[in-house]
């Protein structure tokens, strides 16, 4: 991987990632770092990304990644 980094936003918080990181790798990294748990769904820039498309979703600088988890709801 290149040493160049990009800044994306994970749930509105700025996060640095290596250049050319796809969503699959980013999520794996964030799980390792315990930024997110195991049970989630993801969206990039407000668009839902199905799990089957994580590998093909290349993240770019400024991308907004939303990772959601089950919570109580009415």
């Amino acid at each position: 991987m290149s040493k160049r980094t990009i800044e994306v936003f994970l749930n509105a918080e700025p996060v640095q990632l290596p250049h050319n990181t796809n969503l699959s790798s980013a999520l794996a990294l964030w799980i390792d770092e315990q930024r997110i748990g195991e049970q989630f769904a993801a969206a990039v820039n407000g668009e839902f990304i199905p799990r089957s498309a994580y590998d093909d979703c290349l993240l770019g600088s400024g991308d907004m990644v939303d990772v959601v988890t089950p919570v109580g709801g009415g």
């Binding site: 749930n11 315990q34 997110i36 748990g37 990772v67 959601v68 988890t69 089950p70 919570v71 709801g73």
Partner: peptide, 8 residues
């Protein structure tokens, strides 16, 4: 139930 941004 709902979905919200994850906060470990």
């Amino acid at each position: 139930l709902g979905l919200r941004r994850q906060n470990p």
